[in-house]
């Protein structure tokens, strides 16, 4: 949607008087429309620092607000509210409550890196989107997105076995997100595959796989990665002050 088609005024900030008379003249309705100015009082001064501490957010401070990221963005073309430049602005200004208005769509970044390609300041906006989505979840502003659930199932399997098997990953994902595996389009896909394939082949291709592929001698790598993950989690909790948040919540109870 081109910017001129988009209303920059929020409906809830529009004040219209139903019945108003000034010096004997009826000026009800749109005659007296005015826009309430936005007042932001709750700055989170640590916001930029917190996002910069998460993987991908490191270079947010470089942004000079040129808008190339939003202009090139794949998801922005489908949804004008998906606006990386604007979110980077809000984060750097510490305008947390404004950012939270868009909390349910930030995770939809598809990692196409068109923004990274276009950015003249090497901000890596794709990384900032991931860090922001991560931050929203860590702070409890949003539940884990389907994307995060998928990433976790996938990564867990890679770390455990060294390899991934698509059939198993898909089945676990559908189960954990409470979706039926028998989606009509998935069934159609399997049907079309069956046209030319013997069923044994399907098994090989992971659609009905019972064998988990593994990298042999993987346990050393597995343990090393797990240790690193635990270390990083600790670090992120500290920067975001999550342990303090939990403690404060416990004290209140």
């Amino acid at each position: 949607m081109p910017i001129h088609e988009k209303s920059l005024i929020r409906p809830e900030n529009l004040k219209v008087q139903e019945n108003i008379e000034v010096e004997g003249i009826d000026v009800s309705g749109h005659w007296s429309t005015f826009i309430e100015s936005r007042v932001v009082t709750d700055y989170n001064e640590a916001l930029e620092e917190e996002i910069a501490a998460l993987p991908g957010g490191e270079f947010i401070h470089r942004c000079w607000q040129c808008g190339s990221c939003t202009n090139s963005c794949t998801v922005n073309a489908l949804d004008a509210d998906f606006n990386p430049r604007y979110w980077i602005y809000l984060i750097r200004m510490g305008m947390e409550s404004e950012l939270l208005r868009d909390k349910d769509i930030i995770w939809q970044c598809v990692s196409c890196n068109k923004c990274t390609y276009a950015c003249p300041r090497d901000v890596v906006p794709e990384g900032v989107m991931k860090a922001t989505a991560h931050w929203l979840e860590l702070k409890g502003h949003t539940p884990k997105s389907h994307s995060t659930i998928f990433d976790e199932i996938f990564s867990e399997q890679v770390i455990e076995t060294g390899k991934i098997e698509d059939g198993r990953t898909i089945r676990r994902f559908f189960k954990q997100t409470g979706q039926a595996l028998r989606q009509p389009w998935l069934e159609e896909m399997v049907k079309r595959l069956l046209r030319n394939l013997p069923i044994g082949m399907l098994t090989r291709m992971g659609l009905a796989n019972f064998i988990t592929p593994r990298t042999s001698g993987w346990s050393g790598a597995r343990d090393a990665i797990k240790e690193y993950v635990a270390e990083q989690e600790q670090h992120h909790r500290k920067v975001l002050g999550l342990d303090d948040l939990v403690k404060a919540a416990e004290n209140e109870l």
């Binding site: 991560h134 990564s155 060294g162 990298t215 042999s216 001698g217 690193y228």
Partner: peptide, 18 residues
């Protein structure tokens, strides 16, 4: 020999260094 997954598009969202 005995290769492992590169992490696809998913593992980097858990941690890019992995």
């Amino acid at each position: 020999d005995n290769w492992n997954c590169c992490g696809a598009m998913e593992v980097k969202n858990i941690d890019p260094k992995i």
